[in-house]
Design a protein around this nucleic acid. Structure first.
Length: 422
RNA sequence: GUGGGUGUAGCUCAGCUGGUUAGAGCACCAGAUUGUGGCUCUGGGGGCCGUGGGUUCGAGUCCCAUCAUCCACCCCA
């Protein structure tokens, strides 16, 4: 075998597609309940959108983008995430002129040039939601509750919600200095990654998994304690709203989002059933994103959730997969021309029945075996004997019983059987 | 980008310290039953042993490289 799917990509095979369709149907159902409309944006955008929106210093922009020049020498990038595109569409179509807030969801592939591992792909799929035009803390609570509600609707049981506030540029800047001050002496003792983070993005040091770093930053002041009055009040109201709903959560002051655009509320949902890539949903508020990409000062909030990871979590929890669809009826031949069998097959389809037939010229025995393996409920046996009388045999594969039915009444007879079987 | 594990039939895997034509189970196809599946039995098709180099009289087996894959770091969904 020479050509394979590119590294980090994979085929979603017919046996898996029903599970994806179930997932997508659930997305649409829940979004409808919450009042969100679907939006579909292009799969690639001008590179500049992500550079400005996601942030030059983020790993995503610095080293994970699929960027290329098109024939007109434009620099384009396969979208690494959805929020920037939706924000761009909001501005481009002047949605600030419509009734606010704008609540949308999207579903589709994203691309990041990462090293693949369990739960991490170069082409992966996200379901995400964005709300523009309100900075109300209760909308933060709604955006947090949507994925929680969604996971419950899927039957997922094992997940934990973590929340934090990363403040606004003002309090974050002040905190950053406070943190650097506190860590000054300890820099040489930190791991090499954290030593680098000390200058670039000291907040990330709080999130380091290295045991030694964890210990060293234990007594350091936390961002939650350094929030400005406005951010602190906002965070308190978000928590209050979640409390009022009876929603459990863990405040994780070390939860730091990687993308530059986040402000105030940040949250993450984690599945303990997964490996190292255990985050199944991440989101938060981004009150400066629209302004950053050249729009008016309009707040926003959203989340994105990794479909492959959620499906893996369902699998790990043993939640049954949706089985692939099989036709209800199979037309088998025994000594009659194939054209005749195709004609009967088409007639049944025209009557609204899901029907397939043999295309390998196999023996009747092999055709029955095939239908049995596939789990097809009824097999029509077209034999020359019956056909002479304008009849066919209908075999119930589960019961092993069969009866002779006239071709004229065949469709109605089968429809009746299928209705009865439901 | 860094580290470790693994690449033999469609799938899961054997193949002892290198030794003639590379095996099993499942799956697939056919027959036993010349018009009747699920059980059983019999037979059959399928492998440049990931790829390229090297060591050797001889390599699936040893060495190097490369690619792919898995897991972890990093990062994130």
């Amino acid at each position: 075998m020479s050509i394979k799917a590119p590294r980090g990509t994979k085929d979603i095979l017919p046996s898996e597609v029903p599970q994806w369709q179930m997932f997508e149907a659930k997305v649409r159902e829940v979004c409808k309940l919450f009042g969100y409309s679907e939006i579909r944006t292009p799969i690639f955008e001008h590179t500049e959108l992500f550079q400005r929106g996601v942030g030059e210093t983020t790993d995503i922009v610095a080293k994970e983008m699929y960027t290329f020049l098109d024939r007109g020498k434009r620099s384009l990038t396969l979208r690494p995430e959805g929020t920037a595109s939706v924000a761009r569409a909001y501005l481009e179509h002047k949605m600030q002129g419509e009734a606010q807030p704008i609540k949308v969801y999207y579903l589709g592939p994203m691309f990041r040039y990462d090293r693949p591992q369990a739960g991490r792909y170069r082409q992966f799929h996200q379901f995400g939601v964005e709300v523009f035009g309100t900075k109300e803390p209760t909308v933060d609570a709604e955006v947090i509750m949507l994925p929680v509600f969604f996971f419950q609707a899927l039957g997922l049981k094992e997940f934990t919600l973590e929340i934090n506030s990363v403040g606004c540029p003002r309090c974050r800047q002040a905190y950053r200095q406070q943190l650097q001050e506190a860590l000054k002496e300890r820099v040489p003792k930190l791991c090499s990654d954290c030593a680098e983070r000390y200058e670039k993005n000291p907040l990330r040091i709080l999130d380091c998994k290295n045991e030694k770093c964890k210990e060293l930053v234990q007594d350091v002041p936390l961002l939650t304690g350094a929030l400005c009055a406005e951010c602190a009040a906002h965070f308190a109201q978000v928590k209050q709203a979640l409390d009022a709903l009876g929603q459990e959560y863990v405040v994780n002051p070390r939860l730091v989002r990687g993308l530059d655009y986040y402000t105030k509320t940040a949250f993450e949902i984690i599945s303990p059933a997964l490996g190292a890539q255990s985050s199944i949903c991440g989101g938060g508020r981004y009150d400066n994103l629209l302004a950053t990409i050249g729009g008016p000062d309009i707040p926003g909030i959203g989340f994105a959730l990794g479909i492959e990871r959620v499906l893996a979590a369902l699998e790990a929890e043993g939640i049954s997969r949706k089985a692939p669809d099989v036709p209800d009826i199979f037309v088998a031949t025994a000594g009659v021309p194939e054209a005749e069998a195709l004609k009967v097959t088409m007639q049944l389809r025209e009557a609204g029945l899901a029907v397939d037939k043999d295309y390998l010229g196999r023996s009747l025995k092999a055709q029955l075996k095939f239908a049995g393996r596939k789990g097809i409920k009824y097999v029509i046996i077209l034999g020359d004997e019956e056909l002479k009388n304008g009849q066919a045999t209908v075999r119930d594969m589960q019961a092993g019983s069969q009866e002779v039915v006239s071709l004229k009444e065949l469709a109605a007879h089968l429809a009746g059987l299928l209705r009865g079987a439901e």
